[in-house]
Every structure is written in C-alpha cells, then in structure tokens.
Amino acid sequence: MRVLVTEDDEALRVAVDAALRGAGFAVDTVVDLPEADEALSVNDYDCAVFDRTLPAGDSLRYVADQRRAGWSVPVLFLTARDAVSDRIDGLAWGDDYLVKPFAVAELVARVGSLCRRSGPDPAPVLRHGDIELDSGRHEARRGGRLLALTAKEFVVLGRLLAADGEPVRRAELIAVAWDELVPPASNVLDVLVAQLRRKLGPPPVLHTVRGVGYLLR
C-alpha cells in the first residue's frame, strides 16, 4: 500500500515517514501542495496525509478542489486546529482528522484503516526468519507464537523488519516510536529493546550495532 505524506515540518515528516515504513507501507513525502499535486498526477496512492497549514495555503481547499474533480483517494488531515468547526470542515472533504500533538502509532493505525477502504489489497506482512508482523491484524509472531507487544514495541519491530537485516539508527527508532522529542542519549529505547528481546525469546535475533543502533539477524 502506498501513502503520500504532505508535511512541511521536517521533524514530524521524518517521524511519520519512518513509522509508516516501519509498518510496511510504501511512502512518498513532499513538503508543499505543488509537490503533492505533481506526485498525485503520476502515482496511484491508497491514502494521502496532509498537514492542513502549508506554505502554499490550506490543504483542505486543495483537497476540496480535487474532490470536485472526482478524486477519491482517502485523506487524513493533520492539524493543530481543534475547534469543532475545523473538525467539521476537515471531515466534510477528508476522511479522517488527527489533532496535533498525536501518537505516531495512532496515525499508523488510522492510515491502515483508510488504506483498507481504498481497495481490496491486504495490509502488508513483514517477515524475517521466523518473525512475522501483520500490520493489518496488528499481530506479531515468532515461530507461530503470538507476541504480546505494546504499540511502541510493535512499531519498532516493524521498522527493524522493514530494514531486512540492515542496521537501523537509534535516532530513527526513537522518531518512529515516540512523538515527543526524546534526546538520542535517553535510555527509553534501550528499555524498550530489552523488553522486546525478552518477548521475542531465544535464540537471540535482535542485536546491538555499537555506535549505530540495532538490527535483526
């Protein structure tokens, strides 16, 4: 499933991109409406995510014009506007509305729901060895055994699986799982990885790459 993300805030754009890729989605990111217009003219998307306030203007007006022209791709708006009137306007032309600040894991779940509306394709399933992550069912298994993961553990495991054996940097994993700004030196990721290792069980598959991050092997 392919998702277009239009967001001019670099930190948020990187975090959303990493989280969606970690859940198995193909992602294109742009920073403003002209770039979004170009991407939509040449690619087919299962869902589009728009920040409402962009340098070129309110993305709601852009989406409204697209809808009038017959465009039917599901749209999720991201915004700091939380007034009831703003939500009503957003839902009039979009399909979902998420107010900032939000948990990235919730955004991933909402995008998955919108993608399932757009077509019959199943949600992506990521595999590495005997580990399997089904983002549609929100289930992870090892050797057929269901793993009881938290939302953050699920997202981190998904990003590691998407890397297909390549190392993933600490900063990227932190951006995937935490929507707040967490210093790279914080130990929150180390605690999560220790819990994830315990839940994955033997033989060890989640390894530390010193000075870089973590990988599955």
Rank of each mutant, 00 (worst) to 15 (best):
L173T: 02
L146D: 04
R141T: 09
A151S: 13
A163C: 10
A177C: 14
I174G: 01
L146F: 07
F154H: 05
L157E: 01
R170S: 09
E139M: 15
S186N: 14
A162K: 04
A140L: 03
P167E: 06
L146G: 14
A162Q: 04
R141K: 12
L147M: 13
L149T: 12
L161Y: 01
G165P: 00
F154Y: 05
E139I: 15
I174M: 05
A162D: 00
R145Y: 07
V182G: 07
K152V: 08
G143A: 11
E180F: 10
R145W: 12
V176R: 03
G165C: 00
L157Q: 01
G158S: 15
A140H: 01
L181G: 14
E153A: 13
G165A: 00
L161V: 04
F154E: 00
K152G: 06
P183L: 13
I174Y: 02
V182D: 14
V156D: 06
V168A: 00
A185N: 11
L181C: 11
R169L: 05
A175S: 15
V156R: 01
E132W: 02
D164Q: 08
T150A: 12
E172G: 02
A151D: 06
G165V: 00
V176P: 00
G158Q: 11
A151V: 08
L146P: 03
L147F: 06
A177N: 12
P183C: 10
G158R: 07
R159V: 00
A175L: 11
L161F: 03
E153L: 12
P183R: 13
A175W: 01
S135E: 05
L181A: 13
R170G: 01
G144I: 09
E180I: 11
P184E: 13
P184N: 10
L157P: 04
S186C: 07
F154V: 02
R137T: 12
L173S: 02
G158A: 12
V182A: 15
R169P: 01
L147T: 09
W178K: 12
A151R: 15
I174F: 03
G165Q: 02
L181M: 11
A140C: 04
L161I: 09
L157F: 04
G143L: 11
L147Y: 05
R170T: 14
A162H: 02
P183V: 14
R170Q: 05
S135R: 05
S186V: 05
E166H: 12
A175T: 07
A177V: 12
L173N: 00
R145M: 10
R137V: 10
D164C: 08
A151G: 09
K152D: 08
S135F: 02
R169D: 04
R141N: 07
E166Q: 13
A140F: 02
R137Y: 15
L173H: 01
S186Q: 10
E132Q: 04
A175E: 03
K152S: 05
P167Y: 11
E166T: 11
A185F: 08
